[in-house]
Design a binder for these strands. Structure first.
Lengths: 238, 238, 238, 238
DNA sequence: AATGAATGAGCATTCATTCAT
DNA sequence: CATGAATGAATGCTCATTCAT
């Protein structure tokens, strides 16, 4: 996927056992990379923890970088999937924003600075390919919220005079800083409170500062629409 | 402050010539570190670009780490100083926020991704001492805005229900993301516009909401929620 | 015992092939260290002589110091073992002393100044751990003779008014000087003769003097002194 | 004296001031070499302690090795001179032996392992020139005792069946071991006692094991000679 | 499928020594 | 006479990666 095809005696047809191996390696690699960061992690340590040889690791992955990329990719895929599934279950734009913010903080905080440090830190890698990959993963991860915001924007519920990416940067940038601060200061904040506060401010920020009149007008419209729907599908009378 | 006293073959009383050398080395080191990040930069490359030997570099600095720290420190000192001097010249809290935002974007953008990448990336270093140093420098750098916000908060001009650090994280986190996006996508935004937009949203976010309006909004939200539920599960009328 | 457990990329379960490699490296390292001494020997030279890379050497030994320690340890173990086995086969205290002296001279002389220089020279290393290790090895090496002397001392066959360590120092110190002289002057003495002569003198030295003779000697000495004084300062006769 | 002439801008005609400088440098160099040994000492440290630049040191000495050689040479010259002057003041072969032994132990012990470690350790240097120089200095240093022993040997007071160098090796070798033990174990022995014990054993060792008759014959001869002298120079009668 | 063994390419750091000024 | 400044040449050590078996 990422690795350039290169003449190696690598996995061709992955058998069942192989897939298990791959997963084992990825699991341990995640641990190691999370503990030390990319540069300071060694393939030796990963192999040792697995009780296998370095060579075996290299027969499943193109190299250290490949391995780390996969680790990050899988992690992002996991949390992206969760978001994709759960966000639609939440109702209302503001509630969805709050859900995403809360979930993000919980997720990045819960593994004890491990993946957080790796993803936040190594996402800033000097390696362009690396950074680009992570950027792609991030795009998927942020997509659920982006869709919500886009829709809300079209509906006028969110300011239309702001580019969507800027909204995203504000949401995720704020959180990244909060997380990094917590990490550096070894002072984890109360997540629920922080999530509520952040959501409150972010919502205010991205919400149109429309004059009372406009707001009331939209309110009127909403209620009217609702009434129409109720009329079209009259509830059965007893 | 930075250099730990250690038996080094170093200049102590810096002559005029020496100071020039120090500046030369720092300048080139800034370039190199900016290009490759700390880990991938080599003392050899720095020396080569200067046309001097590695030994000379080591005679002016304790080591690679020391050199990089100095580079970052000087850069932060420069931009911190500017901010400390200029922010008071601007009138009004909102104007000051805009000034800081604009200045930050301009500064980090202008050096062609260099220091930006280094500072943003290496601030996330696995090395705790490193990270701690940068954290300290960042504190000074963000202090001017923090003072402004703190005063505004006391004056009731800024929301008092939000911790100051959270405000800071939102301001600088948003910008960091904007910058990083621009960097990764090689797609520099229009700075003036972005600054204006960010300031607009941030200001709204950190500013107290007009109480009646806020209450109205909450009412609106509640009704909307209720309507949604009605639509999905039309309740039997009594 | 020697190698400190440390995250090294090392062989753990030594295969047959590996053991051979280890022995090869130790053999060459012995040569190199013997030729140049510890400080001036380089891991590169050792690797080059073996036709392998430095990295390979480092994959079998923790480092230069470890390698050298092993070399010295093995050498001492070899000659200690021989002594431990052979000394009991010799009968009589004097014969045993002679055996040890002779063996020591032969052993240290035969390898063409190599290990002799290394062990004698590097035992004087500035590195305390190094010196301590060698001191320990020396203790084992000198133990067989020490046991013999201790027993003889208890039996009254050897002077009881002298501390055992002093006896040891006299025995081995004498030989060390003899060897070093031979080394520096490139003038190897006849070992058999030297061994006999040394043994003769040492035996006399550590053996109790015949009491009456000793008393006589002291009387002689006193009179001689008195006479000398009389000659220098002829006293007026009463 | 030792250094090969080489095109350098070095001392040509030593002025008075220069000689002082030379002495200062030598004094400090002695300290440094004594503290760390040759290899671990640096020209930088020597210069720093003097408050002068390394370059200045190099303008007075050919190099580090030269400097160290001079230090050792001077040290040996000092103690050699003392011995040359004092030994003749002591009367009797045994007393002289005791004097030399005692003096040697005191001298090497008193400077707190410094020069002792340097001379004993670096005398074993892998550098042949170095070792040869020290061998030469040692020869001068041991000469006084050698003369005494040679004379005693000619007089039959010392065993004539032993080569002189072997006697020397036994005397100085024993002491060297005693000293080195003390050094390594940080356990300085009582010097007076050790000197007495060593002298006792050494004297026994190098003294002919002549039968009582021979000894008595010599005693008779001695007394007769003394009487003759007294008769030739009759003391003035009152 | 797994790995034991080997290594090429670095890399930060040290230090004696030189020389123009 | 002194030295500030510079450096060439090492040096021990690490690690991702390869490949024959």
């Amino acid at each position: 996927m990422t690795a350039i095809a290169k003449p190696m005696r690598k996995r061709e047809a992955l058998g069942v056992r192989s897939e298990k191996r791959v997963r084992e390696i990825l699991a341990v690699a995640r641990e190691v990379f999370a503990e030390h960061g990319y540069e300071k992690s060694t393939t030796l340590e990963i192999a040792r923890r697995l009780g296998i040889s370095e060579a075996t690791v290299f027969s499943y992955f193109t190299g250290k970088r490949d391995l780390c990329m996969q680790v990050i990719k899988i992690w992002y895929d996991e949390i992206s999937l969760v978001l994709e599934q759960d966000v639609p279950l939440v109702d209302g734009t503001r509630a969805r924003l709050h859900f995403v913010v809360h979930k993000h903080l919980v997720t990045l905080m819960q593994d004890g600075t491990g993946m957080c440090k790796l993803v936040l830190g190594e996402g800033r890698s000097a390696d362009d390919a690396f950074a680009a990959l992570i950027a792609g993963l991030k795009r998927r991860y942020t997509a659920p919220l982006m869709k919500v915001l886009a829709a809300a924007q079209r509906a006028g519920e969110v300011r239309q005079d702001m580019p969507l990416p800027l909204l995203r940067d504000m949401v995720y940038g704020s959180m990244e800083h909060v997380l990094w601060d917590a990490m550096v200061n070894h002072n984890p904040p109360d997540i629920a409170t922080t999530a509520a506060q952040l959501t409150s401010m972010l919502w205010t920020a991205i919400t149109p500062e429309d004059p009372p009149l406009e707001r009331l007008a939209r309110f009127h419209h909403d209620v009217a629409q609702a009434l129409l729907q109720v009329q079209d599908n009259p509830a059965p009378l007893p």
